[in-house]
């Protein structure tokens, strides 16, 4: 299968990533290159999928009250804050 410029634009919209026309063309070429090689080498494999090599099981910590990072330290990295919160563009209509 071949990835088109339009397909790349659609993917960009899915992940909230603005793309120029030039980028869409370049990324379509990139994906086609990688996927062609994948088609050649991976098709037909029947092994069981291995998602992770770690044999570890989930380790749970005690459900207790911890000490969070100080609010001022966390907010200090935000570009915009207001009243002790992260400030974002309006979400709800009037």
């Amino acid at each position: 299968m071949s990835v088109t410029k339009q397909e790349i634009k659609r993917l960009g919209e899915m992940i909230y990533l603005d793309l120029t026309d030039g980028e869409s063309v370049r990324f379509a070429d990139l994906l086609n290159l990688v996927l062609k090689k994948a088609d050649d080498l991976l098709s037909g494999l029947k092994d069981k999928p291995l998602r992770h090599i770690s044999q570890l099981r989930n380790r749970m910590r005690e459900d207790g009250v911890g000490i969070p990072l100080p609010k001022e330290k966390v907010l200090a990295n935000a570009a915009e804050t207001q009243d002790g919160c992260f400030r974002v563009p309006r979400i709800l209509e009037d």
Binding site: M14, I15, L17, L30
Partner: peptide
């Protein structure tokens, strides 16, 4: 933010992964 903040390599990787 992502268009201006990410470089070309990251954008390509995210698109490939999403595909």
């Amino acid at each position: 933010t992502r268009a201006e903040g990410f470089g070309e390599g990251v954008k390509g990787e995210m698109l490939l992964g999403t595909y």
